[in-house]
Simulated scan of single mutants.
Amino acid sequence: MTKVATLFDNAIEMSMMMIEAQSVIHMRLMGMAGLWKVCPQENSRMVTEKLEAMMQATSDAGQATLRGGSADEITAAAIAPMRNATRANSERLGKNGMKWG
Rank of each mutant, 00 (worst) to 15 (best):
N10K: 01
A76F: 13
S44D: 07
A53G: 12
L66R: 09
M54W: 07
R45V: 14
C39R: 06
T75S: 12
A33Y: 07
M32W: 13
M18A: 09
G101L: 04
R28Q: 06
A57H: 11
L93H: 11
K99Q: 00
K3L: 04
S23P: 08
V38H: 04
I19P: 01
T75K: 08
T6P: 11
T58H: 10
D60W: 06
M82K: 15
M17D: 07
E20N: 15
E91V: 06
K37I: 05
D60V: 08
S90Q: 03
I19C: 02
A11H: 08
M30N: 12
S70D: 06
L7S: 05
G101P: 04
L93N: 14
T2H: 12
M27W: 04
N10W: 03
L7I: 06
M55S: 10
M46F: 14
V47S: 15
R83D: 06
E13M: 06
A88N: 01
M17G: 03
R28G: 04
A21T: 09
Q41C: 08
A71P: 09
L7F: 01
P40D: 08
K37Y: 04
Q56L: 05
L29P: 00
N96P: 00
V47H: 13
V38P: 04
G101M: 02
A11I: 03
A76Q: 15
G31H: 13
V24G: 05
M46V: 14
M1K: 10
N89A: 01
Q56A: 08
M82T: 15
M82D: 13
L35H: 13
Q22T: 01
N84T: 02
S23T: 06
A53V: 13
N89S: 01
C39W: 09
R87Y: 14
F8T: 08
H26E: 13
T75E: 12
S59R: 12
L7E: 11
A21P: 03
R83C: 03
A78S: 15
A77H: 05
S44K: 12
P81Q: 04
N10P: 02
M32G: 14
L93D: 11
R45A: 14
T86F: 08
T58A: 10
S15G: 02
A78P: 14
T58V: 15
R45E: 15
M27G: 05
M46D: 14
D9W: 10
M30A: 11
M14L: 00
M55H: 07
G94Q: 09
A5L: 11
S59D: 10
A85P: 01
F8S: 02
M82Y: 15
M14Q: 00
E13L: 05
K37P: 07
L29A: 03
V24D: 07
C39G: 09
I19S: 02
A64D: 05
T86M: 11
C39S: 10
G68F: 10
G62A: 01
E73G: 10
A5Q: 15
A21I: 05
T86Q: 11
E13Q: 08
M98N: 08
S90T: 00
A76D: 12
N89E: 03
M82Q: 15
V24I: 06
K95T: 00
I12R: 03
S44A: 02
T86L: 09
